[in-house]
Nucleic acid binder design. Sequence first.
DNA 1: CATTTTATGTTACTTTATTCACAAAATAAC
DNA 2: GTTATTTTGTGAATAAAGTAACATAAAATG
Lengths: 207, 207
Amino acid sequence: MYLRSNITRLLQYRSCLTKFQELGFETIYSYNLGKHIGVSAEQIRKDFSKFNIRGNKKAGYNIEELITAINKIFKKNSPQNVLLIGYGNLGQSLIKYKGFSRSMFHIIAAIDIDPSKHKRKTLVPVFPPEKAPEIIKKHKITIGIIAVPDIAAQEVCNLLVKAGIKGILNFSSLVLKAPEDVQINNINLGNELEAIFYHIQLKQKNI
Amino acid sequence: MYLRSNITRLLQYRSCLTKFQELGFETIYSYNLGKHIGVSAEQIRKDFSKFNIRGNKKAGYNIEELITAINKIFKKNSPQNVLLIGYGNLGQSLIKYKGFSRSMFHIIAAIDIDPSKHKRKTLVPVFPPEKAPEIIKKHKITIGIIAVPDIAAQEVCNLLVKAGIKGILNFSSLVLKAPEDVQINNINLGNELEAIFYHIQLKQKNI
DNA sequence: CATTTTATGTTACTTTATTCACAAAATAAC
DNA sequence: GTTATTTTGTGAATAAAGTAACATAAAATG
């Protein structure tokens, strides 16, 4: 099936490769990896080739080299500081999320409009919106996570863009408007379920 | 730019159209909608055409008709029951998530391995894993949300598939293995940040 | 050391997705 | 009521993504 970008796949390869490595494997064949990810072997070789990752004829790919090569593609010279906007249920569970802490991305502060949250003992320091530009500049933050209600999402987006943020992970269900050079990725939980349900029905029809 | 499936776009159109409707608009042109979503007007007309949605030459599209037509594509004859697996931070924030409650999807129960959670006063009833098949059958659940640590994700997936689940929203960072007829959508928060960061760097190079 | 085997890497091909271009239809203007 | 304008709808053209095919190189075999 279609539609999974090559960089999304690279990240999936990496997580799978890590698993293989932990199991003690040292090399892997494109066919092998493909079977585990649900992608054709040719696709994997094409992806690697595109990013100039090469293996050994007959001997496959060295897992450690592969991981290193993929890491290099997504390389970060330093840990990246991330600002969370919206210290509600979702926001707090994002802070606690283990996947982030394992990575080079660190949510170092949060913004919330509710004054009561500024005082409370929180997981990360929580500031009022007007402090955002200062914090972004001070900590060289390039990525913001929008976890506020829809009604406030665009306003928050504008604030972030104005403060120089270049990447946004948007959990609101709005399609945000921002300049071309700002990368916005959307996670719309409701739409995910709708899409899953649509595909289920489609698959049942096609039987 | 590429890579946003037509059904993802349809859902985005709908959310944007709802907004326009709330603002009092009755009709909209493809160009108009496109500008707000960040998609070409031709793309929108093609998408609509593909799903047999048609407008009025010169007069554009009637917003209410559009929304009705899109709803019909994603139609659910009845509210869909969803089972949450993993009543941790993420799981609980998903239950509280307002976007779900507005939709036709309802998380009606959760599964967790921790016995202490079975007793506690919870947002939805929490059951041990062994109860899952029974609950799935009893409530005709077709979709499961996996919000457990990676280590348990594949096992949970197997359990769900065995119990007849046809759609999975997977928050673990593993690529799950399941039969072809099971629709799995992945939300990998770490990878989203990596991808955003990658695109930021790419955009800066291309300037 | 020649031969066979097997996995990569790349070119050619196919499919899918997007953009372009323009006819057709509906409205507005005169 | 005729003409001009504007927007849809679609077929052709282009671009991108994925699949298939196969030459090539490394390892294994005899």
